[in-house]
Design a protein around this nucleic acid. Structure first.
Lengths: 102, 102
DNA sequence: TCATTATTTCAATAATTGTTGAATAGTTGT
DNA sequence: ACAACTATTCAACAATTATTGAAATAATGA
């Protein structure tokens, strides 16, 4: 993974609101959630939620699919997996023993 | 790991400058580097470097130790290890198969 | 002690990011 | 076509974060 991609992921998750959105969608798995459900669930005003969903989607943390008049959002689990691999390399540089865990 | 800790780590690494600093110090391992070496190595003005070192240190990504008139900084590898564990849980929530990798 | 070196703090400013209500665009069911 | 519904964009503003040079702090060595 390129460093600038990693930075964009860190930016995406560097807000408590966005981390909450992402964690919620991870829990929902392939079902995902439509925007209104997320807004209700996390009690975020629609305009503000849109702002954060856009940021997350642009940085590929989320995917979005139109479903009638709804927009269904899903977490990009693969990207998280790639991030973990990136961090493991960074973290283990010269110290592999620290990263062999559960 | 508490969510607010994870957010603080993401904030710390959400700047290209700070990610460069952290990656550089990870490479150096226990030796670490004194502030001036980091400034020279990454070509960052001292005041600006201080600003970012302070942010990283406050969020526990780095440790700092005085050494004569130098300040020696080291990466907190254990925290990265904890972050990887946190992400693995978040990422694998209901989808463990995605996170079993190298 | 005094000049030198290393780093941080301060103050000013620039740049970016977050929040909100109103307006807009697209979709559905009647 | 029209009313109701979902979500986004827009514009204004608030809040936070980043950058810089000058000054301050602290340690060293002559």
């Amino acid at each position: 993974m390129e460093n600038y991609i990693a930075v964009s992921i860190f930016e995406s998750l560097s807000s408590g609101v966005r981390l909450d959105i992402f964690r919620l969608l991870i829990k929902k798995g392939f079902d995902g959630m439509v925007a209104g459900e997320i807004a209700t669930s996390l009690n975020i005003p629609p305009t503000n939620l849109s702002f954060h969903l856009k940021a997350l989607t642009q940085n590929r943390l989320l995917t979005v699919e139109q479903e009638g008049r709804f927009q269904r959002y899903r977490a990009n689990i693969q990207l998280m997996s790639d991030l973990i691999a990136y961090l493991s390399e960074e973290c283990c540089n010269g110290h592999p023993e620290h990263c062999l865990e559960t």
